[in-house]
Amino acid sequence: MEFLAGFSLVQIAVAIAATLGAAFIRGLTGFGFGILLVPILALALTPVEAVLAINIMAGLLAFTEIRMILREAEKSALVIGALVVVGTPIGLLLLDATPQAIARLLIALIALSAFFAVLMPKRGPEQPGIGVTSGVGISAGLLTGFAAMPGPPVVPYYVGRDIPRVTAKASMIGIFGIAALAGVGSGAAIGVLETRIILLGLALFPLVLLGNWIGSLAFGKVSDRLWRTCVGVVLAAAAIAALVKLL
């Protein structure tokens, strides 16, 4: 545990509590891990450290659910996932070049945008055209690199349509897994992925598994309206807390 010498006790405590809570929401809904965790973790770590640590955890978690993803995900997830890989390095380069205070503010605003996205009324089950799908993929990639948050464009794409909840969840999990791996690979490629960040992500991962498992037990046992409202409230609280801390 020598790598923890690089972090204060407050940073470690914040990371543990925030990771467990965000993982629970992710298990319940299929999304929200990065959206919830980045604004909080970025207050204890640098934005780059927070984004990379979360991408490590999210990528490992997706591997544990690969069978469900392959069985239930919509084919559009492959297109969006491929475009995420293209956009992620650009987003991470932008994050690395942005002053930390500004980056934290932008990350909080991105989280707040997700709150409004999940409250939008549902559309029909039809899959959007290639233009909309491509836009979702590129923007999700940029947000993956900059904030470990592919959710704001991806969540409305699936949750906003009248499709089975398991299909939406599997599609989002698959995309977020690809996004996480792209984020980690981009961090290594541009030289900002430190060993201590890898070790921190690995150390927190058991908490991710625990929180995700508890949340998964509740998946399907609450009404669609209730879980959408619950996630919206949590997203808003996380974003507002981050904004208050910054401003």
Score class of each variant (00 low, 15 high):
residue 127 Q to A: 13
residue 118 V to P: 12
residue 133 T to L: 08
residue 146 F to W: 03
residue 115 F to E: 09
residue 118 V to I: 15
residue 115 F to N: 12
residue 150 P to C: 10
residue 130 I to L: 11
residue 116 F to K: 14
residue 119 L to Y: 13
residue 135 G to E: 00
residue 142 L to E: 02
residue 137 G to W: 04
residue 137 G to Q: 04
residue 124 G to C: 08
residue 121 P to Q: 11
residue 126 E to P: 10
residue 122 K to Y: 05
residue 124 G to I: 07
residue 116 F to D: 11
residue 150 P to F: 10
residue 120 M to A: 13
residue 116 F to Y: 14
residue 119 L to W: 14
residue 148 A to M: 09
residue 144 T to L: 01
residue 127 Q to G: 06
residue 134 S to G: 15
residue 123 R to D: 03
residue 151 G to D: 12
residue 133 T to N: 05
residue 115 F to A: 15
residue 151 G to Y: 11
residue 144 T to W: 04
residue 136 V to T: 06
residue 130 I to C: 04
residue 126 E to R: 13
residue 121 P to F: 09
residue 124 G to M: 07
residue 127 Q to V: 14
residue 127 Q to N: 11
residue 142 L to G: 02
residue 132 V to M: 10
residue 123 R to E: 05
residue 128 P to F: 01
residue 114 A to C: 13
residue 124 G to Q: 07
residue 126 E to S: 15
residue 127 Q to I: 12
residue 144 T to R: 02
residue 125 P to A: 11
residue 140 A to F: 03
residue 124 G to N: 12
residue 119 L to M: 14
residue 128 P to T: 01
residue 131 G to C: 09
residue 134 S to D: 05
residue 138 I to Y: 04
residue 122 K to V: 11
residue 135 G to R: 02
residue 140 A to W: 00
residue 140 A to Y: 03
residue 145 G to A: 05
residue 128 P to V: 02
residue 145 G to Q: 03
residue 117 A to R: 12
residue 145 G to N: 05
residue 119 L to F: 14
residue 125 P to V: 07
residue 130 I to P: 09
residue 131 G to K: 14
residue 133 T to D: 01
residue 147 A to F: 02
residue 135 G to V: 02
residue 150 P to D: 05
residue 129 G to W: 00
residue 135 G to M: 01
residue 136 V to S: 04
residue 121 P to E: 05
residue 131 G to H: 11
residue 144 T to H: 03
residue 129 G to I: 00
residue 145 G to R: 06
residue 129 G to Q: 00
residue 126 E to D: 15
residue 146 F to V: 06
residue 143 L to G: 05
residue 128 P to G: 06
residue 151 G to Q: 12
residue 148 A to N: 13
residue 152 P to V: 15
residue 147 A to H: 03
residue 148 A to D: 07
residue 129 G to R: 00
residue 144 T to N: 04
residue 150 P to L: 08
residue 144 T to M: 01
residue 144 T to G: 03
residue 133 T to Y: 01
residue 129 G to K: 00
residue 134 S to W: 04
residue 127 Q to M: 13
residue 139 S to Q: 06
residue 148 A to Y: 07
residue 139 S to I: 13
residue 136 V to M: 05
residue 116 F to N: 12
residue 136 V to F: 07
residue 126 E to G: 12
residue 121 P to V: 11
residue 148 A to G: 08
residue 121 P to W: 08
residue 137 G to L: 01
residue 149 M to H: 10
residue 121 P to Y: 10
residue 147 A to Y: 02
residue 142 L to M: 01
residue 143 L to A: 06
residue 118 V to R: 11
